[in-house]
Simulated assay, not measured.
Amino acid sequence: MSDNKLFLEELKDLVENGLSLNEYRVNGLVEKYNKNPFLIIQLYQIIVKNYRVLPFLIDIESAIYEYIVNEEMLNDKTFYGATLYVADMFDTTQTYIKCKINQTKKAPNRLLSA
């Protein structure tokens, strides 16, 4: 399992268990996953916003990538630019992001949307 998936699963668990994202937890996630505190807070807010669909998500990683790409495309970015932006955010390749999004699009239950 990738670090990004573990990271997103941990954020999802925080939300599902009703735990707030305080400074202590943010610092722990920064140390554990080497992520930017702003990114952690932003992703936590996305997951909180979509709290009701969390039990139905099969792959949180794919769902988050697709959500952010869709949000970026609403802000006048092309699909290429949006996937490149997300790849930079998560320190991975654009190809990986595209593959994960394609997996989500093929899944019968696409629940997060922009």
Rank of each mutant, 00 (worst) to 15 (best):
E72S: 06
N102L: 15
A114S: 11
L14Q: 07
P55R: 12
Y44S: 01
T78Q: 05
T83S: 10
D59W: 06
D88Y: 06
D3Y: 02
N17M: 10
V86W: 08
F7I: 00
N36V: 00
L8K: 11
F38A: 04
R25T: 05
I47T: 08
I58S: 10
A114R: 13
L54K: 08
Y80Q: 11
L84W: 07
Y24N: 10
F79A: 14
G28Q: 14
E31N: 11
T92Q: 06
T78Y: 02
I97D: 00
V53P: 00
K12A: 05
A114Q: 05
I41A: 14
D76I: 00
S20C: 02
G81K: 15
L84I: 08
M1W: 05
L21C: 02
S2A: 02
P37E: 09
A107C: 03
L14Y: 05
Q45K: 15
T92L: 06
E71S: 09
E10I: 00
P37Q: 02
F38Y: 12
N36T: 01
Y65T: 04
L29V: 03
L84Y: 11
P37T: 09
V15W: 09
D76S: 15
T92V: 05
N27F: 04
N109Y: 12
K106G: 09
N50M: 04
L19Y: 10
T78G: 11
E10V: 00
L74Q: 11
I60L: 04
N34F: 07
K49S: 08
K32T: 00
V53S: 10
L6F: 01
L43M: 12
S62K: 10
Q42F: 05
N17D: 13
T93K: 10
N36S: 07
Y85P: 00
D59C: 07
Y24G: 07
Y67W: 08
N4D: 11
Y65I: 03
Q103K: 13
Y65L: 02
E71G: 03
F79N: 13
N109W: 11
V53F: 12
L112N: 03
T92D: 03
I40C: 09
E10N: 11
D13V: 01
K35E: 01
A87Y: 06
I41L: 04
E66T: 10
P55N: 09
A114H: 08
I60H: 09
L11T: 00
N102R: 15
F79W: 12
K32E: 10
D13C: 03
S113D: 08
I97Y: 00
N50W: 07
Y24L: 06
I101H: 12
L14R: 01
E66R: 15
Y96G: 06
N36Q: 12
L29Y: 01
Q45N: 15
D91Q: 12
N70K: 15
Y85E: 11
N50H: 14
I46C: 13
I47Q: 04
Y33A: 06
I58Y: 04
S62T: 06
E31I: 02
L57R: 08
K100E: 03
Y67S: 07
E9Y: 03
V26E: 00
L19F: 01
N75S: 15
L112M: 14
L43T: 09
P55E: 02
